[in-house]
Design a protein around this nucleic acid. Structure first.
Length: 880
RNA sequence: GGGCGGUUGGCGCAGUUGGUUAGCGCGUUUGCUUGACAUGCAAAAGGUCAUAGGUUCGACUCCUAUACCGCCCACCA
């Protein structure tokens, strides 16, 4: 036969993906006769390239989508990409910089053209990479957060929220990235601990030789100081009432204000107030009616207010100011101080808190329903612990700064009339650009230059992709979606906001379940990132090991919600498994006679032609199938993967295939082999779609379906599950293993056939074992095999005991009595210890009176079995 | 400052409501070109489940501390 010995995923995967796509198997139209199942993809950024996080994330989604599709649901996996405002603008700006240009050279319109060009060229890279993973998304439906429909949804939402009074514009301290030159939301400023300094500076008191010592981590902001604040209860500063201090360098007089917000224990207990550059100071400044003074430009250089320091970068200015203070003898000391500092989540530049006029969404009213739906348990998190994280965030929600001072994104639908809004806050909010000012008729209309936060489109994703605000049949059928699969990093950015948007605009949650998987890290536990150079490229892994191997491996080693530590060699697990399946299938394909496998399994449960081995593998298969489904439904995907692995490798391959070789041409073997393999492939298909398809296509067809991905999920046939059959086979397996163990212990040449005598207690076991003697003979290389209730131990024989079954291997001259004594003695010691443990339990009154019946029963049965085994062991030691 | 996760054989990890002889993969040792597979087969070695208490008839599993590692949130300048 021309099937190669090693599975080669390379050509196979491409071929089948193309086949699925061309057949339209990924496409899902609403079908009222079927139940819907839908997932929306977390849209990757158009700047993105596939990393292991994506690989894990999308493998999980694909598993569910393929699983549900086979189960008969009308299944939609909605794909798309995110325009990723700041990230994309940065990438294009960098590209321009290489050509020696800036965005301002081009101007807004030309620049946006460049971005669109860039997106045309690179924006679908990640989509193609997702395809090589095997993702069965409905690509015909692919959306982009900047496409027409989604842009319309964004405008609709802005207008509606504004009408409701939930969008407002105002001057507040926001996080400013001086490199991206835009405002950020609180979530976009990532706090990282930084080793900084706490500087102690003397502020002279007017008309006095004394001074107040102020402690600060950012001396450069003193240029914008407007007051010094102390706690009214702080006795050290009692005398400061009605005093004025002089701001060093700029010599500005500063009021002393009193407020309990100041912690007397921190620093010197005196806080300099810079309302334009610190949120706490801003609040204090407002409470005490102080005018903020902004001292920085948008690139964090000092502005004209800063006198000699103007033009310096903030950190440069910090040093210069300290030097000057030292010269003026107003610098007391500095001490190391570790504190959290915000950093831009896109470029990692230190964020500057800065007073700025921005657009905000009032979040508390939106949070309320989003909170309720989770508290009521209608929307569930897996693992559960994220519920608390979500609730905690929702309950402490702060308003969302949504305006960004960049060009790439949804332009804010706000217009200003030069004539009438210059003097007022009257703005025009409209989805369409107005010709004239509706208030004064003025024709000089200007649109707000800012764009919206990227997440302002992402939070609508579960319904905007389905057509909202239009009332489409897709929206009606597929919303709410079934599960959202994502990583913990984006719970606040995205998950929480989607719930709020869903509740507000659809009056229903966007998904029923949220599955939060772990973060992919390298084998030292560090998060994978391009800049650290520790990434394992999934595309690389795919070309090396295959997509199935990647998928299986990563799923198998990722426990629910736990972070996963990856190293390239871990993918050998999946590659080896794929190869194992490949070769098992080769064996079957080389032997299968198509005319012998057509029997209907539904009528086979009582079929007398089935042997113990046949019944056993069927029993084991259906148990594995049941466990597999149960695990998937509980989002315990690694359990599912490992369960089917265990079945295929260690039951089907290790035992049944070996046994089947002996009766390969008989119909019962043919049928069982075919059914079990075919069903195993179907079960495994969601995890390893390519290899299962490839083999399935080579098998005889039972139904008219064209592909494994559109066949039905294996039907559960509980009637095949039998504990009795399992136990019977267990004994045979144990005997084979015991004989192999004896062979190894006594170093019997592996080719040599040996004689074995087995003494059993019951006649019924004699006949059961007798009927399956060929398996024992074959699998343990036994020549003469005698099974009886009346065996007496042959001379010079080694023995192995399985409860009441004794296995004798005559060794003749090579037996070493001492060695055998020691071996059996050790086994006996182990059993004695166990018996003592069980006896201890059973003698314990508390155990007898309080433990559940079945547990006591179990202990008793175990005790009996141990005793039986011990007595036969003892007897055999005596006989040595 | 709060919250969360982790600590199980040499390494990486499972262990779902407390009752298992504590599992898996890699690695290790020994033996195998057994007519599907050396990306394999067979046999084996290796763990007082981080520490200290507690609850319980019974704890890897529940509770309370402690230690170490990691993450998230938070306006201590």
């Amino acid at each position: 036969m021309d099937i190669p010995k090693q599975y080669n995923p390379k050509d196979t995967e491409k071929k089948w993906y193309k086949f699925w796509e061309e057949k339209g198997f990924f496409h899902a139209e609403p079908d009222p006769k079927k139940k819907p199942y839908s997932i929306v993809i977390p849209p990757p950024n158009i700047t993105g390239i596939l990393h292991m996080g994506h690989a894990l994330n999308n493998t999980i989604q694909d598993i569910y989508v393929r699983f549900k599709r086979m189960q008969g649901f009308r299944t939609l996996w909605m794909p798309g990409t995110d325009h990723a405002g700041i990230a994309t603008q940065n990438v294009v700006e960098k590209k321009l910089a290489q050509e020696g240009k800036t965005k301002d050279d081009l101007g807004r319109e030309k620049f946006l053209e460049e971005v669109w060009k860039w997106r045309e060229e690179y924006g679908s890279t990640i989509i193609n990479q997702l395809k090589s993973l095997g993702s069965s998304c409905d690509w015909e439906k692919t959306r982009f957060t900047m496409d027409e429909g989604l842009s319309d949804a964004v405008l609709e939402v802005f207008v509606k929220l504004h009408e409701k009074g939930l969008i407002y514009r105002g001057n507040y301290i926001i996080n400013w990235c001086p490199r991206c030159k835009t405002a950020l939301s609180d979530e976009e400023a990532q706090h990282r601990d930084v080793d900084g300094m706490l500087y102690y500076i003397k502020y002279p008191i007017e008309d006095s030789k004394n001074h107040v010592i102020v402690a600060t981590t950012r001396p450069e902001t003193m240029l914008g100081d407007v007051a010094v604040c102390v706690n009214p209860k702080d006795k050290r500063y009692k005398d400061l009432k009605d005093k004025t201090v002089i701001l060093p360098i700029l010599k500005r007089p500063l009021k002393i204000i009193f407020d309990t917000k100041v912690d007397p224990k921190f620093g010197t207990g005196a806080l300099k107030i810079t309302p334009a550059h610190d949120p706490v100071d801003f609040e204090l400044g407002r409470a005490h009616k102080l005018e903020p003074i902004n001292v920085m430009n948008d690139d964090a250089t000092i502005n004209e207010v800063g006198g000699d320091f103007s033009g310096m970068d903030r950190l440069e200015a910090r040093e210069a100011i300290i030097d000057e203070l030292k010269e003026m003898k107003l610098f007391l000391k500095s001490e190391p101080h570790r504190h959290a500092v915000g950093h831009c989540y896109r470029c990692h530049t230190m964020v500057e808190p800065r007073l700025s006029k921005q657009w905000f969404v009032k979040m508390a009213p939106l949070a309320k329903p989003a909170l309720d739906i989770v508290k009521k348990g209608k929307l569930k998190f897996y693992p559960k612990r994220w519920t608390k994280v979500y609730i905690n965030w929702m309950e402490n929600i702060r308003d969302w700064c949504i305006s960004r001072q960049i060009w790439w994104g949804h332009r804010i639908p706000v217009y200003y009339c030069k004539k009438c809004s210059a003097s007022s806050e009257n703005v025009i909010v409209s989805k369409i650009r107005p010709e004239k000012c509706p208030k004064c008729g003025g024709s000089e209309i200007k649109q707000d230059p800012d764009v919206l936060d990227t997440w302002f489109s992402s939070w609508l994703w579960p319904f905007s992709t389905l057509g909202w605000p239009k009332k489409t049949k897709e929206l009606k059928y597929f919303y709410p979606t079934n599960v959202l699969v994502t990583a913990q990093e984006i719970i606040f950015f995205w998950v929480a906001r989607m719930v709020m948007a869903g509740m507000e605009f659809m009056k229903d949650m966007p998904f029923k379940d949220v599955y939060i998987h772990g973060t992919v890290r390298d084998d030292t536990g560090t998060k994978m990132s391009k800049s650290l150079g520790n990434v394992i490229d999934p595309i690389n892994i795919i070309s090396q090991f295959g997509s199935d191997a990647l998928r299986f491996s990563i799923i198998s080693i990722t426990a629910q919600g736990q972070d996963v530590f990856l190293a390239p060699q871990k993918f050998e697990l999946g590659r080896n498994f794929a190869n194992k399946i490949w070769n098992a299938s080769r064996l079957v394909l080389m032997n299968l006679k198509e005319d012998k496998v057509k029997k209907d399994l539904c009528q086979m449960a009582g079929d007398p032609s089935l042997t113990l081995a046949d019944r056993w593998i069927l029993s084991r298969f259906f148990q594995a199938l049941g466990d597999f489904v149960k695990s998937l439904e509980a989002y315990r995907i690694n359990d599912a993967a490992n369960r089917i692995y265990e079945f295929i490798w260690h039951e089907l391959c290790d035992w049944y295939l070996e046994m089947a070789k002996l009766t390969m041409d008989e119909e019962h073997t043919q049928v069982t082999l075919y059914k079990v393999l075919e069903k195993s492939l179907r079960t495994l298909h969601p995890i390893m779609p390519f290899i299962t398809e490839d083999i399935w296509q080579r098998l005889p067809r039972e139904h008219g379906t064209e592909s494994i991905m559109v066949t039905s999920w294996p039907h559960m046939q509980k009637e095949f599950i039998s504990k009795k059959i399992d136990a019977e086979m267990r004994l045979i397996i144990n005997i084979v293993q015991a004989i192999r163990n004896l062979r190894a212990t006594w170093r019997i040449e592996h080719k040599k056939e040996i004689d074995i005598f087995i003494k059993v207690k019951n006649k019924s076991v004699v006949s059961s074992l007798g009927a399956n003697a060929i398996y024992v003979k074959r699998l343990a290389r036994v020549g003469k095999l005698e099974i009886s209730t009346k065996i007496t131990k042959p001379k010079h024989s080694a023995v192995s005991v399985i409860e009441d079954t004794e296995i004798f291997l005559p060794l003749g001259g090579i037996i070493d009595i001492d060695k055998e004594k020691k071996r059996l003695g050790e086994k006996l010691d182990g059993l004695t210890a166990e018996l003592n443990r069980i006896n201890g339990k059973l003698k314990n009154k508390g155990f007898i009176s309080k433990a559940p019946k079945n547990v006591i029963q179990q202990a008793k049965e175990r005790k009996e079995r141990v005793e039986v085994e011990m007595s036969s062991l003892k007897k055999n030691i005596r006989l040595l």
